[in-house]
Design a protein around this nucleic acid. Structure first.
Lengths: 122, 122
DNA sequence: TTGACATATTCCCATATCGGCATCTATAGT
DNA sequence: ACTATAGATGCCGATATGGGAATATGTCAA
């Protein structure tokens, strides 16, 4: 089974850095595709494809203006992501304290072999 | 060029639903792999693989306890995600108002052909 | 040492992805 | 009708993915 589709949910959609840029770019005001391409330095077909993904998951809305398509970010769809990450807020507060304590304790060597470290190269 | 690696950053790592479950599961207290597998109903090798991804991007920390590996969520790494999504907070507040207005205005039909709708099936 | 237990890694595979490039569609202006 | 402009879609190819099953590594205990 491959990775979940980018269009499966907002989490997958925002995994792509370009798409995050686009969302920020379209947060303040709606813009046509050409502006996005020029403003972010991405080829137009790529922009269109990213916009299709964002549209499929509801992260942007479109409106036609003559021959242009005006896109804007739909912040409401980002909200669940903010709330999911927010569930850990109380923990990083605690961890800040731990880091502080550890720094203050740095006078005591304490060579604990149990504390883990990232693996090394083979 | 394929999709960015799941280990390229926290955004890609949390795109996978199981990994999100694991992070929530490990938020309160550290747990051995077996508990995660049993608690979430995932096969052990899968859990180990997900944990390796989460570890590579710093979303979890490990510590050895005898023959078990105790994992815990490192909330600090989730913080940037919370902040990125938070940049849109002021907008979804505004959009709430718009939705409210639209609902109140629902007495006026106004058949605007310009307002976009999701595409239809071919 | 041997065996049991806990976790990690490897192999296999069907599939979605992103970028480039070309092409198609749609609207506007003359 | 013709042309220009804006955007969307289609095709291609290299690649990482996640699940499953099997196997490897590592630690404890007798």
């Amino acid at each position: 089974m491959p990775r979940a589709a980018t269009t499966s949910d907002a989490f997958n959609a925002i995994a792509e850095p370009r798409r995050r840029e686009i969302l920020s770019y379209l947060a303040l005001e709606e813009r046509p595709v050409g502006d996005i391409a020029a403003g972010l330095g991405i080829l137009q077909p790529s922009v269109s494809k990213h916009l299709r993904v964002l549209r499929d998951v509801g992260l942007v809305r479109v409106r036609r203006d003559g021959r242009r398509m005006l896109y804007r970010t739909d912040a409401e769809t980002i909200r669940p992501l903010h709330e999911w990450t927010g569930q850990f807020e109380r923990f990083w507060r605690h961890q800040l304290n731990r880091v502080k304590e550890r720094a203050e304790r740095k006078s005591a060597p304490e060579p604990s072999r149990t504390e883990s470290q990232p693996r090394e190269e083979p």
